[in-house]
Amino acid sequence: MKVFLLLLLVGTGYCLDRTQLHGLKALLKNLDGAFATCQLVLFSEMVDYDTAEQKCQNFDIGTGSGTGNLATVSDEDKNTDLKLLLGMAYTVKDKAGRWDADQWVWAGMRKTKNNDGSKKSRDYNAADWEWADGANPQDFKKWMKGQPDQRKDGDNLQNQMRISHHGEWDDTFKYKEHPYACDYQGKYILSSTLSTWSQAKAACEKAGLQLAKVRSDQEVAEMLRAANTFLGLQDESLATWDAPNWIWLGGTDAAEEGVWTWIDGSPIDYFDGMNWRAPNPDNAAYVGKDSQNSLSLSRWGEFDDSFDSKKRRRPFACQCPGT
């Protein structure tokens, strides 16, 4: 089954304006089944609520601790952005199709108290509902008119929350199958659009980001996990230097040969610890061509200095704000 993944750029102090939204969509348009931004993840795989909860608990890029969770949509920004992401994964249908499974996404709220099915218990009380992180919903809510209504189906109650293309909340049965959204704590947004280093730099900037930094062995490991999740597993049939095997990063020595910095001007302190593919960095140059001034990382964790030219188009990684 093809899995579609979208993440959302709603980190602290970061909201997408119209220009950045177009930049984000451009980053994601050529991904093969996975789309990434920064704080929320939407998987289009159709699963029931319990399965969605388990999958999110195991989705822990950025923590490595197995403590992920279904999305906590506790403010207007996250609710609006989750609506946007669902629209990017699935086409909005007309009124006749509004209840179809792909028109809703599981979020991490469920009713944990007063579940006896009585008329009194069916009245909405925020203290009865809980986000996956254990918090009760506060003032923010987007329930559809008349919801939650806590209908019964045999022994099953509508104790789980889903969100529509229109950003409306509904309670439903946990055996229903929908896409699902997880919180994301990682640093990186990856794009499979084959680009030169300069094109990759510009594409990240149009989305309000910058080409990524990898500053430790731990961040290399996170980058490789993110690549496997968002770009798909490495294709073992490819040759070493085939484009999909390499990811552009934001390192360069174009300003001063041999002095490597990140594109924001900060030094690459990790330089001596990098696992360079021998004999790199070699600054090899074709006759009459520019030198190798651009940093990339292989899908197996080796670094290379390379040309910023039309002959070197590769996937690339952008850095999430504040990371």
Rank of each mutant, 00 (worst) to 15 (best):
R162N: 09
T72G: 07
H165A: 02
K310N: 15
L5W: 13
F303Y: 04
G167K: 01
Q150H: 14
P148H: 00
M109T: 00
Y49F: 15
I247M: 05
Y49I: 01
N69W: 14
V3F: 06
G322N: 03
A132I: 09
M144L: 13
W104S: 03
K213M: 15
G322W: 05
K187D: 15
L211A: 09
L85I: 11
P321L: 01
L249K: 02
Q150T: 07
T196S: 01
L295F: 04
V73P: 08
V259S: 13
R215M: 09
A132N: 12
E130T: 00
L157E: 07
K29R: 15
D50G: 06
G167A: 02
F230D: 06
L295H: 01
D305H: 00
D290C: 06
A126E: 13
D153Q: 08
Q160S: 06
D139K: 09
S118Y: 02
M144I: 11
F4W: 12
K78A: 11
T37M: 10
I163K: 00
W260Q: 03
N228K: 07
S192Q: 11
F230G: 04
L224C: 00
D139F: 10
L7E: 15
Q210H: 15
Y184I: 05
R314V: 05
V10N: 13
Q158K: 03
T72A: 10
D50W: 06
Q158H: 03
D264M: 07
A52G: 05
D264C: 05
T51F: 04
L24A: 02
A127V: 06
D217R: 05
M46C: 08
W248S: 02
K29S: 14
T323P: 08
W131I: 00
A181H: 08
Q319H: 06
C15K: 13
T261R: 10
Q218S: 12
V73N: 03
E257K: 14
K310I: 12
R314D: 15
D282Q: 04
A207V: 00
L31Y: 10
E205L: 12
G33F: 05
K111M: 00
P281L: 02
T112N: 03
Y14R: 06
P148D: 01
A207M: 01
D304P: 05
G250Y: 13
R98H: 08
T323Q: 11
D94F: 07
L70W: 05
Q57W: 08
Y124H: 08
D60W: 07
R225T: 09
S121K: 02
Y14W: 10
N283D: 12
C182S: 03
M46T: 09
S164W: 05
N293Y: 11
D128M: 03
R215N: 14
A278S: 13
A135F: 11
N125K: 14
V287K: 12
N69L: 14
M109R: 00
K119Y: 10
R277I: 08
L31D: 15
S195E: 09
K83M: 15
K174F: 12
P267W: 04
